[in-house]
Amino acid sequence: MLLERKMTLTDLAERVGITLANLSILKTGKARAVRFSTLEAICRELDCQPGDLLSYRED
């Protein structure tokens, strides 16, 4: 999704207003929870829906 929008993780982190480390936690699936404000900001910057970002995967 980032590639399609020609955006780097650093760019997204700056636009969303979270640290690169936190964005990395989110990207690697290590996050235990996501704030609605964060989800909203990511969806706004990537112009997508939450469902495009979240998926269920059995461990």
């Binding site: 979270i18 989110l26 996050a31 235990r32 929870a33 996501v34 704030r35």
Partner: peptide
């Protein structure tokens, strides 16, 4: 604390 640290 871990929950808080891993809440993005």
């Amino acid at each position: 604390q871990a929950d808080s640290d891993l809440t993005v």
